[in-house]
Design a protein around this nucleic acid. Structure first.
Lengths: 349, 349
DNA sequence: ATTAGCACTCTATCCCTTCGAGTGCCAACA
DNA sequence: TGTTGGCACTCGAAGGGATAGAGTGCTAAT
């Protein structure tokens, strides 16, 4: 069945009212608050149909209706209109992000924090996916016998390092030879094309005894792989408790419990990113309620956008909030933060 | 008034019972659960006196008694006996911390996580206070025109780095000269004795034009100062919600709100550390309820111990849990984790 | 297709009662 | 003087109606 115009308006109105009042909405209050040119009985008929179609539901027989996941989905896909943030709100966000940090990571954390403050929800960001960026420099610095620091400068303007163990009796000079060889042969190679074999090949020809060489090369490889690992930044978890939607302790507990396993959340965001439809240039991903395959997020919506550090290096930033949220507002907030982030990131590349 | 022996036993019993049942304890149940050789009426008299002394209080006229902050304090100071962890528990902790990480920071995070899991409370750790450690190496690595990485190796076995801005047109060679000069002159100096002036003096004599030199020296100084900054690691905030003590949403919200400002918590821990009584070798700090000068922690106890990375470089690790906790158990857990941490840290120095 | 009217449903809220654990105090006792 | 049994009293928690109010579905009329 198709939604005729009035039914669309009714659904739109129900979502709006429910979002703003947090009470199931009935046919009568719908008439009161909106300019429907029909009677409440007519709306009741419409609502019965919307319910039949699975777009709204009632908590109990004699209560008003609330949107179902499917209803929110319809609202987000076809009904709502995104409006720009007010200049005031824009300014507020720009002011908080502008801080002239020197590292991309700080910029991202900064943006995440700002987003959480602006929306009042939990916000999160993934670190840039660096597998498509390539090595610009790689140095190995001896720290003390048996310990060295591998420093990598990547094309995306990111610096990574890792402390590694090396053989105790290897000399400074030997380390420098190896480091030079790796750098010479691997510079320009994207991280996802660097394997243990590549590194070992790159290090061949170095005049360093085999077992020593092999261990250092392995550690260098491990450092490079670690640089490629994804991090997730979560902010504002405590704001959950301010929301009436999570006033039932149990829900709040489940949600925070799940969020505390940041690895799992990161994995999920990654999965979302991979299944994203890249054919459109719309970089938003929206998951509503049960669409989210994480425990305890049944009452949440999960919205992320993709930011770009370079053409081929990107990450995600977004929020986890209650399903009952002002979608149009939140989406423009995320969009604005994302754009600001993209702009600021140009400084680094 | 002095506490006679029986009153001590009564207080002890009240704390124990309240901790284990989470219900105000009355004279009758006290008799039932413990082997007092007197009647409940006698205990009632004792309890009235304990209340008069401010050690216990009643939620309402006709309820049992619960320990006051002062009562817990007395319990912690004089009544409880610390028992060792069972071998089983020890093993559990050792297993989780043993992981052979290569950086001190990871080790600390690891320990913090373990402590939170073991206690079921929020745990936290401060990064080592590095001001007494000294520079062993300082390198400045050019990343790209206008950007460099300052790398510092400290005596405590810690590596720190920071991306800094440098003049666009400075040469690799000039940077190396400056870096060499700083390293040569400042190696061996404790961080807290390094000031902007010290760094500028160290860099004198370098054959680099004044304004360029000055900016690089300033950035190097800033990097050193940043290495000295304290970090705090918090773990397991979500566990708060599992505790019956914080089932009243409002309290949980206040607590998590306060904890979300990690800078503030860090400042408080620092203050505690500074006011610690260093004359005894007891490295525990215990703050109960209102003794904690942080909003929303009225129902909490805050217990930390001091770990040592080297003789002069230390940090704190501990928990924030409900006042109504098994103090002896929690203290031995912290103690055990701290000792394990100290042991593992020897690898790094 | 829309509407007015009506009987029905279900929850939230308030009030009242009852129950029980606990207290304080008093008088008696060792 | 410290201890005890007894007793009246207090207060919160739990349970049981009763009521009000918002909302629904259905029917018959327009």
């Amino acid at each position: 069945m198709q939604l005729d115009n009035r039914k669309k308006e009714v659904l739109h109105a129900i979502v709006d009212d429910y979002v703003s009042t947090n009470e199931p909405v009935g046919s009568k209050s719908l008439i009161e608050r909106h300019n429907f040119q029909v009677s409440s009985a007519t709306l009741r008929n419409d609502m019965a149909e919307l319910e039949h179609m699975g777009l709204i539901e009632k908590p109990h027989t004699s209560a008003g209706r609330i949107p179902s996941d499917k209803g929110y989905r319809e609202y987000v896909n076809s009904l709502m209109t995104i409006e720009e943030l007010s200049p005031r709100e824009q300014l507020e966000i720009e002011k908080r992000i502008d801080s002239s940090v020197d590292e991309v990571t700080d910029l991202i954390k900064n943006a995440t924090h700002t987003l959480s403050e602006a929306t009042g929800f939990v916000s999160l960001a993934m670190s840039p996916r660096l597998r498509k960026s390539f090595l610009k420099q790689l140095k190995i610095l001896m720290i003390e016998p048996g310990k060295a620091l591998v420093i990598m400068v990547l094309s995306a303007g990111v610096v990574k390092d890792k402390v590694v163990r090396i053989p105790n009796f290897i000399s400074d000079e030997q380390i420098m030879k190896i480091s030079g060889a790796i750098e010479k042969n691997l510079t320009g190679k994207p991280l996802d094309e660097i394997t243990l074999v590549t590194v070992e090949t790159a290090g061949k020809g170095t005049e360093v005894p085999e077992p020593l060489l092999k261990q250092v090369l392995y550690e260098a490889y491990a450092a490079i792989k670690q640089a490629d690992e994804l991090n997730i930044y979560l902010e504002g978890e405590h704001r959950i408790l301010e929301l009436p939607d999570f006033s039932s302790l149990g829900r709040a507990r489940d949600l925070l419990g799940t969020l505390s396993d940041s690895g799992m959340v990161a994995g999920y965001v990654n999965e979302m990113e991979n299944s994203r439809d890249h054919s459109t240039d719309d970089s938003f991903m929206i998951r509503i309620g049960q669409e989210i395959a994480l425990e305890g997020l049944d009452d949440c919506s999960f919205i992320t956008a993709t930011y770009n550090l370079t053409d081929s290096v990107s990450g995600n930033i977004g929020v986890i909030g209650p399903k009952r949220m002002l979608y149009s507002k939140v989406i423009s907030q995320i969009d604005f933060v994302k754009k600001k982030l993209n702009k600021e990131m140009q400084r680094f590349t």
